[in-house]
Design a protein around this nucleic acid. Structure first.
Lengths: 122, 122
DNA sequence: CAGCATCCGCTCGGATACTG
DNA sequence: CAGTATCCGAGCGGATGCTG
């Protein structure tokens, strides 16, 4: 079969999707949602440094792309939780791999940075 | 063992690494370099839409983080090629998964977007 | 060929205040 | 609780021109 989509082509629509996914907040959100449905303010608390505005924007985009599902429960006051769709769930392994990579290889990265910087200074 | 690093903590250094990796151009570069060493202008040509300035910046950051190795060969004129380090190679599976995901699930994403948009319009 | 330097528009994203 | 609305500064990144 031929390749209908190619991320290396800047006119390919996959670029737009890649642009959304290749985002710090999107990755952290998808990773956090893997454990199960989470409510809005809980996400805000869990993902440190994520402002309410950006959280709202990012969730909306992920929902539009079909990765996240928004559920409103008619309590008083209203409660909303976010969960991964089946489509979104196909990404969690990859997303988790990313986060795990940073945490597991941080020391190697720091070492490389130090070596790089001292090589310039020397 | 305890967890020395936590990407959900905004004071954790892994956030900085995640920020670098969670970038469209970094992902495309790492993916492109998986096939083997590539020269500067070749990368520029292969990754459509990537400007020379951003290519240069991104390569330098990836080199500093220890993911990419820069090799200068004393030809005339000088030729430079970039390759993945062993550390960088530990990421390529994940990176490839991302790119492949976008290409393979594009139709589902488009369908979700259309449904989302028409739901708003209706 | 493989970059660096500069200019600059534009968007991202933080802070703040307000609503059902 | 779960958002929306607005303001605004910082920086990403494209365009252009120049170098060894």
């Amino acid at each position: 079969m031929d390749r209908p989509y190619d991320v290396f082509d800047d006119r390919c629509p996959t670029r737009l999707v890649l642009d959304r996914l290749a985002d710090k907040w999107s990755l952290l959100l998808l990773d956090r949602l893997d454990a199960g449905p989470v409510r809005f303010n809980q996400l805000r608390r869990d993902i440190r440094g994520l402002s309410q505005k950006v959280l709202s924007q990012t969730l909306k985009r992920l929902e539009r792309d079909g990765l996240v599902e928004r559920t409103v429960r008619p309590t008083v006051p209203v409660s909303v939780d976010y969960a991964l769709t089946p489509l979104g769930r196909t990404l969690t392994d990859t997303v988790a791999a990313f986060a795990h990579w940073a945490e597991r290889n941080m020391d190697a990265v720091i070492a490389a940075q130090t070596a790089y910087d001292t090589a310039l200074a020397g």
